[in-house]
C-alpha cells in the first residue's frame, strides 16, 4: 500500500497542498493536521492538488467537509485541482462538484483566488 504524504507549497495568497498515496481513515488525520496548521496561520486560500493521489476513501472526503465551513467563513476557500479520473469519479458520484470548485489545472485555481482578491 502506498503511504500517504501531504506537503505544502505557497503561491502568492494561495497555499497548495500536494497529496499523494492513499487517503483513508488512518491517513486522513495527517491531512487534517496540515489543513488545521494552514488555518491557524490564517492561510485560508487552500488548493489541494490531487495529481499523485492513488485512492480516497469516504473518510478522506470527510476531511474537506469538516473544514469547508470554517475556511469559507474566514473568507477563504478550498479548491481542488489536477484530479485523476478515478478520483474525480468518486467526487462526482457523491455530488462534490456541486460544493467545491474543481480545476483540471492548479494554475487556474491560483488565478481564481487572485481575481477574487482583487
Amino acid at each position: 500500500m502506498a503511504s500517504f504524504n501531504a506537503s505544502i507549497r505557497e503561491s502568492g495568497t494561495a497555499s497548495i497542498i500536494d497529496i499523494s498515496g492513499d487517503l483513508d481513515a488512518h491517513t486522513s488525520i495527517q491531512l487534517e493536521q496540515v489543513i488545521q496548521s494552514l488555518i491557524d496561520k490564517g492561510r485560508t486560500n487552500i488548493i489541494v492538488n490531487f495529481s499523485k493521489l492513488n485512492y480516497i476513501s469516504s473518510a478522506g472526503l470527510g476531511v474537506f467537509m469538516s473544514f469547508i465551513d470554517e475556511v469559507r467563513s474566514k473568507g477563504g476557500d478550498i479548491k481542488f485541482a489536477s484530479m485523476p479520473d478515478k478520483i474525480f469519479q468518486i467526487f462526482d458520484l457523491l455530488g462534490f462538484p456541486l460544493l467545491y470548485e474543481i480545476y483540471d489545472d492548479e494554475k487556474k485555481a491560483i488565478d481564481k483566488f487572485q481575481t477574487t482578491a482583487s
Binding site: S58, L61, G62, V63, M65, S66, D69, L93, L94, G95
Partner: peptide
C-alpha cells in the same frame, strides 16, 4: 451528522402491480 460525515443512498420504490421501479440516488453508486 458530524460535519465530516455523509451518507450515500440509493432508494427504489417497487410497484408490483405496475412492474415499475422508481429510483432516486443521493450520491450512491449507480
Amino acid at each position: 451528522l458530524e460535519k465530516a460525515s455523509f451518507i450515500s443512498a440509493l432508494y427504489g420504490i417497487l410497484d408490483t402491480h405496475e412492474h415499475m421501479l422508481r429510483l432516486s440516488n443521493a450520491g450512491h453508486c449507480p
